[in-house]
Design a protein around this nucleic acid. Sequence first.
DNA 1: CGCATTTCCTGGAGGC
DNA 2: TGCCTCCAGGAAATGC
Length: 272
Amino acid sequence: MPELPEAETIARTLHQRLEGRTFSRVQVHRADIVHGDPRPLEETLPGRRVVRVSRRAKQVVFELDPTAKLAVRLGMTGRLMLVRPDAPLQPHTHMQAWFADTAEELRFCDPRRFGGLWLLTPGGALTGRRLTPPGPEPLTLRPAEFRTLLVRKRPIKSLLMDQTIIAGLGNIYCDESLFAAGVHPLTPARRLRPEQADRLLRAIKQVLRRAIAARGSTILDYRDPDGNGGTFRRQHRVYQREGEKCRSCGSVIRRIVLTGRSTFFCPTCQRR
DNA sequence: CGCATTTCCTGGAGGC
DNA sequence: TGCCTCCAGGAAATGC
């Protein structure tokens, strides 16, 4: 499930390979995964040049010239791939794009279709699914601002999972950050002491930086544009380790369900 | 209003 | 082996 580090890895790879390239042809196989400007991508993308590929929250964003953006939400199983044009077409490939100045072909695949593409143009109408503006980026967030986000009494984990509060954290990196900070996931956010809040933000940044360095976590589906997995899973301390021993204290890692999501933590290292 | 629960969707896992 | 049911999970909609 692509979260911030996976989206960052994908965006960096695509930027390296597609910067300056101009779309020549696009084929959409499922129109219902495209949102935003209602004009078909087949007409709007060809002729536009890729100025930059970057990441915002968990989205991969293509900045184009003439001015437009293509935002890609990967959802659970979304993949952006760079392939040779003769590569066999995998099931659930919803879009293919070709370029005027490279043989590489870009494909968007998403079996579960929780993801999608948003074409954002100046003054363009917005149709289809909504792209809610994400909260602040954790890697550049200042401690003082982070503390002001923690005024709710919701459990800290459900707050960190809320993309409108803070962008880019999903189930894996929430659990790993809370462990690294020694904070119990059910702690009401407003009950965190300022020093705990500061420690949590430092933990979030460290976990994300290490995960980016490892090119993300591959559990089942995640792959980068070249089909390679990330290796951060080896460094997981709690995520999907229910019943195994805590690497710090030896206690048995527990799993609870919080707002419908599996939540893993060490009952000793993360006290209420 | 604030929070929890349900919905979307498919493939993989587990039961028998 | 094969069929069936269950379930994960991000984000939006719905419910309380």
